[in-house]
Amino acid sequence: MLEVGLNNYRMRQLNKELIMSLVWRHKVLTKSHISRLTNLTIPAVTNILDELLEEKLICHSQQNLSSRGVGSGSYSLPNTLPMTLCLNVAPTKIESQLVDFQLNPVGELQIKTIEAKTPAELLNSIMKLFNGYKAKHARNEIQLAIALHGQVDPEAGVSQNMPQAPWKEHVEVKYLLEEKLNCNVMIDNDCIMLALAEKWLGTNEKKDFCVINVDYGIGSSFIINGSVYRGSLYGSGQIGHTIVNPDGMACSCGRYGCLETVASLNAIKKKVRTWLKTHADVTPDVIEGFNTEQLITLWREREPTVYKLVEDGANAIGLSLYNFLNILNINQIWFYGRSCQFGQQWLDTIIHNVVINPFDPANSIKKNATQIEFGQLTRQQQLMGIAYLYVEESLSEFRF
């Protein structure tokens, strides 16, 4: 017999999850504030808070947040929770940001250049970085939250494919680091990091949205009904491997004509280097050293060849995104990545290919029409998003 509706226990668990998510988001809350945000009565809120206090998931302070009236103190996360070291890891660079038990930043974002030629060298760089933070905060427990480029199995803690890496084998990142460092480790894709950052630190209140990262490659991540959608094989969001030209260039995935071969920074720079070889006055060193900053400069100067390559890429992104929108009907899109430096004209080209979405309201002025914008979170905030893997895990425990 199928269970219908919600019994009292399940409803109570959902309300506990709701209140805990508010505490994680707002850091410190009063009972009356929780009541207003949840539309629960004060007695109902009191009972749930008492349970959360008994379970040591929150703590209570007699300090009132308002001088008006007689308050009942405030509620926050216990300071016994560990700090989290947030890492964004690639074979050539590791970005790091430490956060405290409430996921507030501790210190500044750090960037370390590395040259990892093997998985062991990459793991050694991570361990060395972790031990440096641990030495500075010896009295605190520190856990790791790691964002990795490419396809990741977050359940097994395995990096399945890292496009920039010289190796092709799977790497058991979670198991190996937990064994060596004796700390908790969670890993996921770098686009999941951006999606979680938008969900928890952004101003967007929609439960359905998408983030797209256009950089070395092109990745995306979806938040559907407030939850990250990964797919059963953790391959959701591989917009960069949608085929836009079956007769196009070979892609690293083994197929031909993927979006990444047309619109990623890596692909465009390769094509520009090929074009530069036709110029007798351009030396091999200049061609080899051609970088993203030079590409963007040529774009802004409207150099014809570069301008067309970037425009073609933007058009291809827009058409691919149009197809995604028709399938999922998500109408809030945030763009991140170094390609955002191409500016508003680049974004407008993408938008032009999306506004014909037949599922948008006829009047595009309506607030529910598709919104495609540059993400506004700082790089520090983006990196902090990966720490919310632990928050999402803790909240999921209320659903069983």
Score class of each variant (00 low, 15 high):
residue 161 N to T: 10
residue 28 V to F: 03
residue 263 A to C: 06
residue 375 G to C: 07
residue 107 G to D: 08
residue 275 W to I: 04
residue 92 T to P: 02
residue 175 Y to E: 15
residue 40 L to K: 00
residue 311 E to F: 03
residue 316 A to K: 01
residue 97 Q to C: 10
residue 79 N to P: 13
residue 181 L to S: 05
residue 178 E to R: 10
residue 400 F to P: 00
residue 66 S to A: 10
residue 131 N to Q: 14
residue 161 N to F: 15
residue 208 D to H: 11
residue 293 E to V: 12
residue 359 F to T: 09
residue 142 I to C: 04
residue 279 H to E: 07
residue 292 T to E: 13
residue 89 V to M: 00
residue 18 L to E: 06
residue 180 K to A: 15
residue 161 N to L: 13
residue 146 I to N: 03
residue 304 P to D: 02
residue 78 P to M: 05
residue 120 A to R: 14
residue 266 N to V: 04
residue 291 N to I: 04
residue 338 R to Y: 09
residue 164 Q to F: 10
residue 58 I to R: 02
residue 226 G to F: 02
residue 87 L to H: 02
residue 306 V to W: 04
residue 351 I to F: 03
residue 54 E to W: 09
residue 334 W to T: 10
residue 32 S to F: 07
residue 169 E to G: 08
residue 132 G to F: 08
residue 353 N to E: 14
residue 88 N to R: 09
residue 356 I to M: 14
residue 358 P to R: 03
residue 291 N to G: 12
residue 303 E to V: 01
residue 327 I to N: 07
residue 152 V to N: 02
residue 379 R to M: 15
residue 193 M to C: 12
residue 25 R to K: 15
residue 34 I to C: 01
residue 379 R to Q: 15
residue 44 A to P: 04
residue 285 D to G: 05
residue 124 N to A: 14
residue 284 P to T: 05
residue 92 T to R: 10
residue 303 E to D: 05
residue 391 V to L: 09
residue 157 G to R: 01
residue 136 K to V: 11
residue 67 S to L: 15
residue 50 D to W: 07
residue 114 I to C: 07
residue 95 E to F: 12
residue 138 A to G: 01
residue 286 V to Y: 11
residue 269 K to L: 13
residue 272 V to C: 03
residue 308 K to V: 01
residue 194 L to T: 02
residue 155 E to L: 12
residue 48 I to G: 00
residue 65 L to W: 05
residue 287 I to N: 01
residue 47 N to F: 06
residue 31 K to T: 08
residue 217 G to W: 03
residue 157 G to V: 00
residue 84 T to I: 15
residue 290 F to K: 04
residue 163 P to D: 03
residue 45 V to Y: 00
residue 14 L to H: 00
residue 388 Y to I: 02
residue 108 E to K: 13
residue 140 N to W: 06
residue 74 S to F: 02
residue 164 Q to R: 12
residue 103 L to E: 06
residue 241 H to E: 01
residue 222 F to M: 10
residue 299 W to H: 06
residue 226 G to M: 04
residue 312 D to Q: 12
residue 94 I to N: 01
residue 379 R to K: 15
residue 333 I to L: 10
residue 351 I to K: 15
residue 318 G to E: 07
residue 266 N to L: 12
residue 107 G to V: 08
residue 2 L to Y: 12
residue 224 I to Q: 09
residue 380 Q to W: 05
residue 66 S to G: 01
residue 393 E to G: 11
residue 336 Y to N: 07
residue 117 K to N: 13
residue 397 E to I: 06
residue 243 I to M: 03
residue 155 E to I: 14
residue 55 E to K: 13
residue 387 A to F: 07
residue 69 G to N: 08
residue 112 K to S: 11
residue 74 S to K: 04
residue 9 Y to M: 08
residue 44 A to C: 04
residue 94 I to E: 02
